[in-house]
């Protein structure tokens, strides 16, 4: 049984938004990482991950998200998340993501605050 994660990218004038759909596990995390690293190589330094259509993450997937955040910080950029379920929000706080990435309730607030 596989639960494939789908990732869509929307380029913005000052960065990009990644939309995820499905389960963020090791495979899904790597898919997000591949797309994020492509954007970073292309000069994107502000990245918003919209998890509106992701209801489940696991600790391995989150560990990959932390790696993406670390790489972006190394490049002087920033990553933010929006549209998290309450449980994913709580899990991100436990895992420490909230210390290094901003979390917004909706995309509109995130785009405005990040200047995308």
């Amino acid at each position: 049984m596989t639960e494939e994660l789908k990732v869509a990218v929307e380029r913005k004038p000052q960065g990009a938004v990644l939309y995820t759909k499905g389960y963020i596990n090791n495979v899904g995390g790597e898919e997000i990482a591949n797309r994020a690293y492509e954007l970073m190589d292309d000069g994107v330094r502000t990245l918003l991950l919209n998890l509106r259509e992701t209801k489940i993450v696991n600790s391995i997937g989150i560990s990959i998200l932390i790696e993406i955040i670390e790489k972006m910080i190394d490049k002087g950029g920033k990553i933010a998340f929006c549209c998290l379920t309450p449980v994913i929000h709580k899990t991100f706080q436990i895992m420490g993501l909230a210390n290094y990435a901003s979390i917004f309730e909706n995309e509109e607030a995130a785009v405005k605050e990040l200047g995308l």
Partner: peptide
Amino acid sequence: PGTPHKRGRGLQLIEL
């Protein structure tokens, strides 16, 4: 809790 760490959180997440 709250510090970024790549692995070793499974049991902690279960308990929380």
